[in-house]
């Protein structure tokens, strides 16, 4: 038994190494004083300095931030409503519409939104990206909120009603405070998803608007440069912080339970 669990641990350790080593390499090379991601030459902040002077990159980051904030704000409201509705009522259409965008290959949503926006004469840009991001973030927020609600003892709201609270009071005083961590976790997830999205953004961005992932894509398509390592490292740091906060607030939420 002991020997077997040792093998299991070794295999699992390899699994973790497989997950982490590539990312660590990206981070390490962002401090390497060399144009090439090859031999270690020496420590430098140079690539971060380059990054901060890169106008295009800064614009892209700014765009990502604006889209991320507005998309996650709207998606949190709509997703919370969807999650509550799915928990509270027997619905047929809404759960399908909420889960489908998560379940199908992203490219399908990207191309169908492209056709849709062009047909409606919506100029592809910040607005179309934001609208698309809201559509796929709703589902994630809804799932987190619903899982939080399912974990809640149903007799709590009944007890509130029983003790004299109206429907609305029971929701405001009992349900809402109890699911708030789930809502915040959902909002952080939505923001992260929006900041990170590449595929759907790729199709709905048009020529003018560039987000951080699009900028990274166009750079690595041409050549590997340590500036990308630097921006990747910063992006990972931001994501890490947000996700750790989110998972603290709603354990299990990120597993899609």
């Amino acid at each position: 038994m002991a020997r077997r669990s040792w093998i299991l641990w070794a295999m699992a350790a390899l699994g973790y190494a497989f997950l982490y080593v590539p990312l660590i390499i990206v981070i390490v090379y962002s401090f390497n004083d060399s144009r090439l991601n090859a031999e270690w030459v020496g420590f430098t902040w140079h690539w971060y300095e380059v990054l901060l002077k890169d106008e295009q990159m800064l614009t892209a980051a700014w765009n990502s931030l604006i889209i991320g904030v507005s998309a996650s704000a709207v998606a949190t409201v709509l997703g919370t409503m969807a999650g509550y509705a799915m928990y509270r009522f027997k619905l047929r259409l809404l759960p399908v519409l909420v889960l489908m965008p998560i379940a199908i290959p992203e490219i399908l949503m990207g191309v169908s939104l492209l056709i849709f926006f062009v047909m409606l004469n919506v100029t592809l840009g910040m607005l179309s990206i934001t609208l698309a991001h809201i559509a796929f973030c709703i589902g994630f927020v809804a799932i987190v909120v619903r899982s939080r609600l399912t974990g809640m003892d149903e007799s709590l709201t009944e007890a509130a009603r029983d003790l004299g609270a109206t429907h609305w009071q029971a929701f405001r005083l009992i349900t809402l405070p109890l699911i708030m961590p789930g809502i915040i976790a959902g909002a952080l997830m939505a923001f992260t998803l929006s900041i990170d999205d590449f595929v759907i953004t790729f199709f709905t961005a048009g020529v003018d608007a560039t987000t951080l992932p699009l900028q990274i894509y166009s750079m690595i398509k041409i050549a590997v440069t340590p500036e990308v390592n630097a921006v990747s490292t910063l992006l990972m740091l931001v994501t890490l912080i947000l996700i750790v906060i989110a998972s603290r607030l709603s354990p299990g939420a990120l597993r899609g339970e």
Partner: peptide, 20 residues
């Protein structure tokens, strides 16, 4: 008459104490 308007209170099996 909704539950909140009845002069009746319940002790639930799970107690349903508001955890927050």
């Amino acid at each position: 008459v909704p539950p909140e308007a009845r002069d009746i209170h319940t002790v639930f099996q799970s107690y349903a104490l508001f955890p927050h």
